[in-house]
């Protein structure tokens, strides 16, 4: 259900920008979600369709892009993608390991991959 609350924020943001630009309708909306965000694109899309009903964005095409996850090591300063867990090592688990790809340190910070961003909209005046 948290997709509904993020969709509500997206609807507000899109309609405000369209109104400020005095647009007649919104043709498309481009969103960016981090690969590690817990927002399921199909669910967000569903709630956006509900939210855009009877608004200038009712017919807008949605493009949802995925932002790859990246980390920075606080010990050696390296930045990059995480090593991945493969299946077999930890049972069915496939996903990132939050450790430095360079020095193997575990004091890392996430620099991308958690986004929920309205990137741009295309409007018709």
């Amino acid at each position: 259900m948290h997709e509904a609350s993020i969709a509500e924020s997206i609807v507000r943001s899109v309609l405000r920008a369209a109104a400020e630009a005095k647009a007649e309708k919104v043709e498309s909306v481009t969103l960016e979600f981090g690969e590690w965000s817990a927002f399921e694109p199909a669910q967000v899309e569903f709630w956006l369709k509900v939210g855009f009903e009877n608004t200038p964005a009712a017919a807008a095409a949605l493009e949802i892009r995925t932002v790859p996850g990246r980390i920075r090591c606080r010990a050696c300063g390296a930045e990059g993608a995480c090593p991945q867990n493969g299946s077999g090592v930890t049972g069915p688990f496939v996903g990132p390991v939050l450790e430095c790809p360079s020095c193997g340190g575990s004091d890392v910070e996430i620099i991308s991959g958690r986004e929920a961003v309205v990137k741009s909209i295309r409007v018709v005046k």
Binding site: I6, S9, I10, S13, V14, A17, A18, A21, A23, E27, R114, E115, A116, V117, V118, K119, S120, I121, R122, V123, V124, K125
Partner: peptide
């Protein structure tokens, strides 16, 4: 930021607004 219109009527508006 409103970019240069791609046609006479269609505009791309850059928002980059973080919903969180």
């Amino acid at each position: 930021k409103i970019s240069i219109p791609s046609t006479n009527e269609t505009f791309d508006i850059e928002l980059s607004e973080n919903m969180l």
